[in-house]
């Protein structure tokens, strides 16, 4: 009797940790480990960043997740959010009649500002990924950590990007699963990063040197480390065009967490 209780307990714990039901993304662990490594930024004159291993949400934050957060934190509700923290299109697709508009509850939440994403992750005891962390995780292909060496992977990304945004966003965990077990990092929705607009400075502190001008005034992606990775260049361009209170119908987010305790703030 006691033994079966123990077994039951182990099973319960097992399923909570995702050891059971491997095929259903929702039942798998919430976060996956991204191993330590070096991220080589897009631009040649930016130095590589050393990254410690960290945990990343397997799935983007969904409408359902965000609705839960908004219920607990009414100051982030569509009707009460302050303009300082989100523009007028915040949660635009949410609707009284149809809670999440055309999108399913399980689809990535979009039309959220950086401020809202930052607070959401904080409230989960997590944080927003840095651009280096996000891009590093996004370098993985389907079957290997270096997607650039996976035949057809870059083309696939470009195909994703050239598709118009669907009327109805797909449920999270249905587009692309990468080598680390991260879903949808490439797919239909872009994602916020913690330092999304620090890549370009206005340059006053060090005169207007650096890569900025060459890149944006006709330089295209040619000054980048890997011109074939046009998708990364497009993401960069998108990020630098954003302001933290902006909300975009194709922009959502996911959270990460430090693996080492001493790293956490």
């Amino acid at each position: 009797m006691k033994t079966s209780f123990i077994i039951l307990l182990i099973m319960l714990e097992g399923s909570a940790n995702g050891l059971v039901a491997q095929h259903l993304p929702a039942k798998q662990p919430e976060m996956v480990i991204i191993p330590a490594g070096k991220y080589f930024p897009l631009f040649l004159d930016d130095e590589p960043t050393n990254l410690d291993s960290f945990l990343m949400d397997r799935l983007p934050v969904t409408n359902e997740d965000f609705n839960h957060f908004v219920t607990e934190n009414p100051q982030w509700a569509k009707a009460s959010v302050k303009r300082l923290f989100a523009d007028e299109n915040y949660l635009k697709h949410w609707d009284d009649k149809k809670p999440f508009g055309p999108h399913p509850a399980e689809a990535a939440v979009v039309n959220v500002s950086w401020f809202a994403a930052l607070k959401y992750c904080e409230c989960q005891g997590k944080r927003l990924p840095t651009t280096a962390e996000w891009e590093y995780a996004a370098e993985a292909g389907r079957n290997r950590p270096d997607g650039k060496n996976e035949p057809g992977f870059y083309n696939l990304l470009l195909e994703f990007m050239s598709e118009p945004l669907p009327e109805k966003l797909p449920p999270a965990g249905t587009t692309l699963l990468n080598y680390y077990g991260v879903w949808d990092i490439h797919g239909v929705v872009f994602e916020w990063t913690y330092d999304f607009n620090s890549a370009l400075t206005t340059g006053e502190s060090r005169a207007d040197t650096g890569s900025g001008n060459a890149l944006f005034c006709g330089g295209g992606s040619l000054q980048t480390r890997d011109p074939a990775n046009y998708a990364a260049f497009l993401r960069h361009a998108m990020r630098t065009s954003l302001k933290a209170k902006n909300t975009v119908k194709s922009l959502g987010f996911r959270c990460v967490k430090d693996l080492k305790i001493e790293n956490s703030r």
Binding site: L84, F115, L118, Y194, T201, T202, E204, K243, K245, R265
Partner: peptide, 29 residues
């Protein structure tokens, strides 16, 4: 304040901050 609050106010003010490897920052003035 802490990192996150600092990043938040920088975004509110529209000050762009890019950490440099020497511990300093490129930043708009």
């Amino acid at each position: 304040a802490d990192q996150s609050s600092t990043a938040e106010i920088a975004q509110v003010l529209g000050v762009k901050i890019k950490p440099l490897s020497d511990g300093g920052f490129d930043h708009s003035n």
